[in-house]
Design a protein around this nucleic acid. Sequence first.
DNA 1: AAGTTTGAGATGTATAGACAATTACAGTTA
DNA 2: TAACTGTAATTGTCTATACATCTCAAACTT
Lengths: 252, 252
Amino acid sequence: MVIQAETIDKSSVIPIYYQLFKLIEEQIRRGDLKPGESLPTEHEISLRFEISRMTVRRAIAELVSAGMVYAQQGRGTFVATPKLDNIVFELNDFNQEIKERGLNCKNTLLEAKIIRADKELRERFQVGEESKRFLYFRTVFSAEDERLSYEVKYTIYSKSRPILESELKDPSLPGLIATHTEYVPMSAKKVLQVAVCTEEEAAILGIAPNSPVFLVEQTIYDPDLKPVGWSKAVYRGDRYKLTSYDGWYKKD
Amino acid sequence: MVIQAETIDKSSVIPIYYQLFKLIEEQIRRGDLKPGESLPTEHEISLRFEISRMTVRRAIAELVSAGMVYAQQGRGTFVATPKLDNIVFELNDFNQEIKERGLNCKNTLLEAKIIRADKELRERFQVGEESKRFLYFRTVFSAEDERLSYEVKYTIYSKSRPILESELKDPSLPGLIATHTEYVPMSAKKVLQVAVCTEEEAAILGIAPNSPVFLVEQTIYDPDLKPVGWSKAVYRGDRYKLTSYDGWYKKD
DNA sequence: AAGTTTGAGATGTATAGACAATTACAGTTA
DNA sequence: TAACTGTAATTGTCTATACATCTCAAACTT
């Protein structure tokens, strides 16, 4: 991994740490630095640009606080996986807390197949007639043998790869996109609504038809903001709630 | 403003900057340092605790990033005003976007009265038999003459003040607490759930009974984490949705 | 073969000092 | 009086250095 030296101007009015921050940020966004990859060590960077290690640390601190990298004492600094898992309101992964509680939970693959694109799907993905096929997944999330949510996912079919059950360990839409397509999931838009469930959803989740549910529609974008994945998830209204804390006492 | 020196232990395994951070945070929470007030200068703090100015800056940087203080070059560092309006997911004010769109919207006071505390209410506010009375509000929010949400609010009755219609310009729970009680709203806990509306709620909102709705329960706390307000709001499921953007491209 | 120790390399904390940039204010000048 | 000027105070940036702490792997011991 090479960071180019000529892009830092020590005589500029723009602080050096900020220039370095922007430089590394750019590399990550371009994909020159991929998630999981390590940055050069602080020592290396300070030598390459002939700046103090403290200044390098200041730049890295900004990246850490932006959530783009994480540092591990004794190991190094690494590019973070874009946090589609959210801090904001735990919307990203409704199931995060359940998993953290150590409950016996699992994802089950109900169906996975290649489908022909229809007009609606092509519009959603902003693609023309040339994209004929999509991948289609149906999964169920359950904890303690109780089905809690049901999700339908679509992504563009661009790699002919068998769909392995084992991959369902990360059945998230970004995970599936990374595994089964050539696209890089980079950002997400999520819309949360309330709804009453359909007959089909009620049957799958084992609840009464027309029960209230959370409905989360998610669109995943690649670095060029092209939509590369779409999903619709239904969460049992009697099993999920979202809690948020505001103000200065957040952590207590 | 005095920060006490004996509370920093330079030989502790806990970093000095963190001890200082906690110390100042505590002062702000206690109200020893009030919003708008200035902190001692970095130089003063470094002298008082006999630590380096860079270490002081590190502590202050944490406070800045936590949003508790803000620094102005050439002037000083000041305690920030707590923000109960949230950025996280616009949950704080479901109606914020509607208001920003410039729609013709208003809050209507349906009812405001003093009520006797029952057991449930006393438990919710963690008060004993001595607190006999509470304030009770019922309000409706509407836009373009359509009723969109309905909210019930409770707060401790501690000031005998007439309830003025004009005050309903800020009918938020923190606003009502600040106006009608001696308490200072400092933080909030919100729980979002889905539900089907009751007959009463359906009648008020002009929707069918058992329609799906967002249900937001909010508890407001004072600086001592004592609950000083509670509300329950119902939002029409067919009129509200929450959108969030995640990932690194958020700003683009 | 399995466990232990050691050391190199990485990030974390802390210091002391220099200079830059901004603000506020007092003093000077037109 | 009004505008300008300079100076002190304050935060912002940057350096160079020292040592602490953690990780990993190689070397060593049992």
